[in-house]
Computed example of a mutant assay.
Amino acid sequence: MSKTETKARDGQAMPDVKTAMVGFLSEFKDFQADIKTKLHNQEERLTMLDRKTMFAGRPALSTAAAEEGAAPHQKAFEAYLRSGDEDSLRGLELEGKALSTAVAADGGYLVDPETSATVATVLSSSASIRSIANVVNVEATTFDVLIDQGEMGSGWATESDSSIETDTPQIERISIPLHELSAMPKASQRLLDDSAFDIDSWLADRIAKKFARAEAAAFVNGNGVDKPTGFLTHSIADDATWSWGEIGYVASGADGAFGSADALIDLVYALGAQYRAGAAFVMNSKTAGSVRKLKDGDGRFLWSDGLAAGEPARLLGYPVVVAEDMPDIASDAAAIAFGDFTAGYTIAERPDLRVLRDPFSAKPHVLFYATKRVGGDVSDFAAIKVLKFSAS
């Protein structure tokens, strides 16, 4: 082979080697970058695992990691509360625990079922008439209660005599309209943006507290105008002349005071025997303080504390509900009620709870206008009696 041919061959081989080396270096760099990325991701996962281990045993916060495992309706509802993202609520199906997509004309949305259930639980456990009344869920604007005021007539018959016509019971219809109850808690946008802020619990707690105060007052003293009708709003009459539509009373025997402890015994037995089994006393804290000082003829206190934690105190063997909206002991005041409130007072409510997010009216705070519909009224006037602090 000549020198000319050898040079030509070497000149052709050198570019091929350079090209191969450039390709190899490029692929090696890509491989190196991929390894670095994987190591970085692995380091982040280990860091998150260390944080979870470090905070184990502490109350769970609503972090992004926790939100990843949350139900779709919870994610959507929290997104709406934090940022007002209405699109996050659309497209969800109403199945089981999912959020309803029903939208009110004013832009309000049905609350996440778990939050709504939390509010309902707090209301039911509060010291108000709700805890002992008959509570029903309705879908209409009113709830009708049918009451049999009398018993069907009957008589003895002989084998040969013909039967005689007997009295037919009278049916009374009581209509309980539903009214809108509202609460408007607020929070700063910065607080809502904090991923560690448990917005569900906060909202449920604020709504429940405001609803509980408003309901408790209305169920006792509400005038029925845009609110429930309280049982003390109805006229009261001496139990000796009591008639349907009135609340019967027993006098304490002294003006604005107890004539004697016997007045409480008279109150108990003024209630029909069919109601006494499920009856309870209702009074406020100030009245309870006076009652628990009363003694019988043998010097024993009429009041006894609950035998176990969580059990209500008892007066003459009946539970006592302390409702702060009951009137204080005063002249002619009906400061103590006694009755079977499950039969005597009905609370009708719609099960849904709506929230309207308003980020404009109270900047830099965000207002949450929460509403529900609830009504209440006496459903059996014979099931409730009161102690009137008067001489007669």
Rank of each mutant, 00 (worst) to 15 (best):
D340Y: 03
G375T: 00
L367K: 08
G299Y: 10
V322C: 04
D325S: 13
R373W: 10
G310R: 02
A313I: 02
W303L: 05
V366T: 13
L315H: 04
A333F: 09
T346V: 14
Y318T: 02
A362S: 14
R314V: 09
I336K: 11
A333S: 15
S290M: 13
E311I: 01
V322L: 15
I329R: 04
A330M: 08
F338D: 03
V291R: 00
D340G: 01
I347Q: 07
Y369C: 09
F338I: 11
A333T: 13
A333N: 15
A335N: 07
R354H: 11
V374D: 00
R300F: 13
L316S: 09
P364G: 12
K295M: 13
T346N: 07
V291H: 08
D298L: 14
P351L: 05
P359V: 05
R314E: 14
F368K: 04
E324N: 14
R292Y: 09
R373G: 02
A334D: 15
D305P: 06
S331H: 12
H365K: 08
D328V: 10
F301C: 03
H365T: 14
D358G: 11
S304I: 09
S361E: 04
A337C: 14
E311F: 07
V320T: 00
P327R: 01
D332L: 12
V355R: 05
A309C: 02
R350P: 02
V374L: 15
A370D: 01
K363P: 06
G317H: 01
Y345V: 03
F301M: 05
V320N: 06
K293V: 12
R314H: 12
D296G: 12
G310S: 07
A348D: 01
E324W: 05
P359E: 07
S290A: 15
P364V: 11
I347V: 15
R350T: 00
G339D: 10
G306Q: 02
D352H: 07
V291N: 02
T371M: 05
S290C: 06
L353K: 03
L315A: 11
H365W: 10
L302P: 06
P327G: 09
G344M: 01
D328I: 04
G310N: 00
D340N: 15
L367M: 05
S304M: 03
A348T: 06
D358R: 08
G299V: 11
G339M: 02
A313Y: 03
G344R: 02
V321M: 14
V321Q: 09
P359C: 13
T342S: 14
Y318S: 06
S331W: 02
F360L: 14
P312R: 03
F360P: 01
D332I: 01
I329D: 07
A333D: 14
P327T: 04
A333E: 15
I336S: 13
A348F: 00
P327M: 07
L367D: 10
A313N: 12
F301P: 04
D298E: 14
F360N: 11
A337F: 11
A313G: 15
K372W: 02
A337G: 15
L307I: 08
G310K: 00
T342G: 15
D340F: 04
F360V: 13
L294T: 09
G317V: 00
V291G: 07
E324Y: 03
P319M: 08
G317Y: 02
V366S: 01
G306W: 00
A323P: 04
L316N: 08
L353R: 05
G297A: 11
A309I: 08
